[in-house]
């Protein structure tokens, strides 16, 4: 099951990177989010999986696809100047990061110890546990997050409106 969801996630993300059409890339990103929701379910965390589906594949991707269609920019515009050196440097950097991180994770003794000590599947996360922790220990963070969302909403309206 883990391999299935991991492959869905990574293949869809790779499809997004290579896709020419921006709308198809957005739909690939939705598939990535579905794969991630599956991974969260395997992590015994149905709460996070539900939030992933509702907020990411629901709200945020609808916003992105809406903007793509509004701007009518389905295809990437032709490049002004081809920058082969920078592009290959980017590819090399990404490949180096990927290989280095895989090597680091598989060789790390601390990660292996944590994986061994926590191997037993814990009881599934419930909304009650999350809510209790959120409101008992992180009330200030919760309020600040609400304020941040309000500020972002006002900022978005102010940026897109032609003359206030």
């Amino acid at each position: 099951m883990f391999l299935t969801f991991a492959l869905i996630t990574l293949c869809a993300a790779l499809g997004m990177l290579l896709q020419k059409n921006v709308i198809v890339a957005g739909l690939c990103l939705v598939a990535t989010f579905f794969g991630l929701a599956g991974l969260f379910l395997l992590l015994a965390n149905p709460v996070a999986a539900a939030f992933q589906l509702i907020v990411y594949s629901g709200a945020i991707m609808v916003l992105v696809l809406f903007v793509i269609m509004m701007l009518n920019s389905h295809e990437e515009e032709p490049a002004q100047a081809s920058r082969p050196v920078q592009r290959w440097l980017g590819v090399a950097l990404a490949a180096l990061l990927a290989l280095g991180s895989i090597k680091l994770v598989s060789a790390s003794a601390g990660v292996a110890a944590l994986a061994k000590s926590g191997a037993a599947v814990p009881t599934a996360m419930t909304l009650q546990k999350v809510g209790t922790t959120l409101f008992a220990e992180h009330v200030l963070g919760f309020e600040v997050a609400g304020l941040l969302l309000l500020v972002a909403m006002i900022g978005a309206v102010a940026l897109t409106k032609r003359n206030l």
Binding site: M1, L39, L97, A98
Partner: peptide, 23 residues
Amino acid sequence: GGLQGYLVVAFLLFTIGLATVLL
């Protein structure tokens, strides 16, 4: 699908995202 598997998925996703921003 141990902890290492999830961390590798996270690292690869981050790399693909970074490559998207760069390329």
